[in-house]
Amino acid sequence: MPVLRLEKLLKRYERTGYDALKSISFTVEPGQIVALIGPSGAGKSTLIRCVNRLVEPTSGKVLWGDVDLVGLNSNELRGARRKIGMIFQEFALVDRLSVMENVLSGRLGYVNFWQSLTRRFPQKDIDEAFRLLDRVGLMDHVDKRADKLSGGQRQRVGIARALMQDPDLLLVDEPTASLDPKTSRQIMRLIAELCRERKLTAIINIHDVPLAKMFAERVIGLKDGAVVFDGPADQLAGEVLTRIYGEEDWEEAGQRALMKFVQLGDGGPSVDPTRLAGLR
């Protein structure tokens, strides 16, 4: 399995001249689970979106083995994306499709347009989908519409969809942001277990420090678009956290960063104003 190496990755929003990522470089060994922590607006989401180019990096390299993902044309990129699964903050399921259709959508890179339009996926894909749904505990909900499920169940569908791709690399963006503490833990445990079972490389964005320490072997701390910490999870304490989150009250700092992020509003993932209201 290839090594993932980021070299001087830079993302600048042209309209505002704001650097969301400032020359980021690090290497992830095969099978490693890396937690990416830092205040909201530090560039965590932008960073993992630059890996599969949902956000186009301004300059730098994303090396996957010896292939530079940044240099791929759209066809080659599709091929590369098939092997990179992604799990999203607010699940990003297609609400009006059934659970099964959402899971099978993980195979879209492997089937042709006509097959996907008529929902005629190969039997081995369907077998795999049933197996994964069984694994994440959703066998009773196969034909339910995705928006009929609870938050934790919806994230399980998101996990199954990502694993359907049979990925080598898993990008996970705040998987627990809209879940309660108990469900958060269950979901994180499930993701960690599945990564170990399948020996996946994973980068997990997470703002919850205890969860990061619990499930990741390595932690990278991001602040204002730069790496300020990179080391084993058990080194994460007092002084290091202050370096990442600053001296101020953590929650307040996060809120200010989020406000900055909203004002930017340029190509980056948009922030739901209701969530902002919830912070106040």
Binding site: S98, Q123, K124, A129, F130, D134, V142
Partner: peptide
């Protein structure tokens, strides 16, 4: 792909109408 558990192998699926 990982081996298929016997309980679910070969089970057909079509989109519910």
């Amino acid at each position: 792909m990982a081996e298929v558990a016997p309980s679910v192998s070969g089970r057909a699926w079509t989109r519910p109408p």
